[in-house]
């Protein structure tokens, strides 16, 4: 059995998780920076990671009930993400790898979301809808790589919800509050619905929703309208990807996967195409170390390790640039 410690730190969260080659999550701890006001500043986030990282790593080892000497591999989120956050995380990973004398693995953050979701669901070949503060992507495996079939052309869905929430006085993250209010809304106000091929755009919708609020319309109705429009767009591009790839598994992951209305809509899409559907459970859907550890184990199995000298971070690392040697 191989044991991997995975470190995740691409944006506002830092996480450490320990997973075995049998696919058991032995521990998974994280902390998210929650600014009092405004958005995420990359430098503040990296300071958060530098301050809490060592404590969280220690806690993950304690929670797993192992000694550091039992760790066989160190994996870290090499990209994509915010440069300062990635560098802080990479520094911790390199130090641990050198200190323990074990191999270092660089993991692609987006690939890790899909792999941990596949582990949890038992899916082999899903169309993945990955929705979070920084990402809105529809990804599927084709020609030896995970390829992005569709994504946002401007802002991510989570970011759109947060910016709207800030405008109306909600605290970060706004998604759960928008969902709660949307349940009480009933009147639909038309918002720009923007699908281009398999890509989507949320900026026009955001501007219109803010205007509706400024005009004094009830907030619960606006939240309802935002959810129905934004999730309808996602459902449509997901459906296009399913029809295009003819795959029969649909995986929903990322922080916004917690939303029950989005889940219901995507379940409906999957049903229409006779596909199986799985929403990744909240502890494994957000940014955390277990997904990095598990993907590290898969990469280790095909000899995909890094020398320290070539372990620089990759802030713009595309999903389709990672070889997926462990899948046929």
């Amino acid at each position: 059995m191989t044991i991997c410690l995975g470190l995740e730190g691409t944006a506002h969260s830092f996480g450490a998780g320990i997973v075995s080659s049998e696919g058991l999550v032995l521990s998974n701890v994280w902390d998210m920076l929650r600014p009092d006001e405004g958005g995420i500043h990359p430098r503040e986030a990296s300071q958060h990671h530098a301050y809490l990282g060592p404590l969280l790593i220690r806690q993950s080892i304690d929670d797993a009930g192992i000694s550091p000497k039992q760790i066989d591999i160190i994996a870290f989120s090499q990209g994509p993400g915010l440069g300062p956050c990635l560098r802080t995380t990479a520094t911790m990973a390199r130090s641990l790898s050198l200190h323990l004398g074990v191999p270092l693995i660089g993991v692609n953050h987006c690939v890790a979301h899909i792999e941990i979701g596949s582990l949890e669901s038992g899916f082999n070949d899903p169309v993945t809808i990955y929705v979070s503060g920084g990402n809105s992507q529809v990804i599927a495996f084709a020609g030896g790589r995970y390829r992005t079939f569709g994504e946002t052309l401007d802002i991510a869905i989570g970011n759109m919800l947060d910016v709207f929430g800030r405008h109306v006085g909600m605290r970060f993250p706004a998604g759960p509050k928008v969902e709660k209010l949307a349940k009480m809304g009933s009147t639909y106000h038309t918002l720009p619905y923007s699908v281009k091929g398999m890509d989507i755009s949320y900026s026009g919708m955001l501007t219109s929703a803010r205007r509706l609020f400024d005009e004094g319309l009830p907030l619960d109705d606006i939240c309802y309208s935002i959810q129905e429009t934004a999730f309808g767009m996602l459902a449509e591009v997901a459906e296009r990807a399913i029809a295009h790839t003819k795959k029969n598994e649909v995986l929903l992951t990322g922080g916004v996967a917690r939303n029950n209305r989005l889940t219901e809509i995507l379940q409906g899409v999957a049903d229409r195409h006779g596909a199986r559907f799985h929403r990744v459970s909240p502890p494994l859907a957000g940014d955390q170390g277990a997904m990095i550890a598990w993907t590290g184990i898969l990469q280790y199995g095909v000899g995909d390790t890094l020398e320290i000298s070539s372990s620089g971070v990759l802030p713009k690392w595309r999903t389709d640039e990672q070889d997926i040697g462990w899948k046929e």
Binding site: A140, A142, G143, R145, R147, T148, F149, G150, L153, K196, G197, M198, D199, H244, D320
Partner: peptide
């Protein structure tokens, strides 16, 4: 520009080789 971007994306996902 979006139209051309979509062509590029379609080629990437359907005709990668």
């Amino acid at each position: 520009g979006v139209d051309l971007h979509l062509i590029k994306r379609a080629l990437e996902t359907s005709h990668w080789d």
